[in-house]
Design a protein around this nucleic acid. Structure first.
Lengths: 124, 124
DNA sequence: TCCATATTCAACTTTATGGTTGAATATCTG
DNA sequence: CAGATATTCAACCATAAAGTTGAATATGGA
């Protein structure tokens, strides 16, 4: 039903790859904020914060309503749903398994074409 | 129980912000692969693919076992769990709600200090 | 040993990122 | 209108990213 282009995930994950921007999303999860409010907790110029906001905006993660001189930003979580959808594919790799062990089990499971009796010791 | 540093999400989300790397993770979800095998479907030099693999590796998303001249890469999904955990915070913003509408509702919900009777028409 | 295979390394190019500062623009307010 | 506030813009800088090519390294196999 909900179909997401893989390519549209690029800007979303990219936007999430920065702690400042993730923090801004958390702020917006509380309530809409102006640019100044969003910038306040972060130790950087307003112009820098403005750029981060633009990154979030162009990833579709926030929308902006201009009211006079202030821009009110709101969270738009929809693209996060598509990110989570992408990640959900991998749930089977950690659900109800220890992850390192899981990797081993999964490898043997899936690699039907590659029967390897045991891991070789490192040559170095 | 599982506690993840926000900072460790930076390299994870960054790694996911590239379609080539996401595709490589999908490949590895099928079975472990050598560098050559991982590179094959992607239209780039082996050296470029090798760099992508290194990005995934340093984000902790894959591990590598060197056996002779081939390096076998395996998926390590654990950091994806922490990414999903981060995203899960936002589930409430899309679960059982239309997303645009949801933003509105949520805004009213969370902004207890800001009772706005109805959305203002855009000033522009 | 010789050659092919697997992978990385080094150097380089181009473009993107994240930050700065100072000026510009627009709006609100007395 | 004048000044303060909100935000962006433009220019600039330093570093990182993503790709290339060609050489280096290591291993496997005849």
């Amino acid at each position: 039903m909900v179909e997401y282009l893989s390519s549209s995930l690029d800007p979303v994950f990219h936007a999430l790859g920065d702690a400042t921007r993730r923090a801004m999303l958390r702020q917006l999860a509380q309530s809409p904020r102006s640019v100044t409010e969003l910038a306040a907790p972060h130790d950087m110029s307003l112009a820098a914060a403005s750029k981060h906001i633009k990154v979030l905006e162009s990833a579709g993660l926030i929308s902006r309503e201009v009211q006079g001189r202030t821009h009110t930003c709101r969270l738009n979580a929809a693209p996060l749903a598509s990110a989570q959808e992408w990640l959900s594919y991998y749930e089977k790799f950690w659900t109800s398994r220890l992850d390192a062990l899981e990797a081993l089990l999964k490898a043997e499971d899936a690699a039907k074409a590659k029967p390897k009796s045991k891991p070789q010791p490192k040559s170095k």
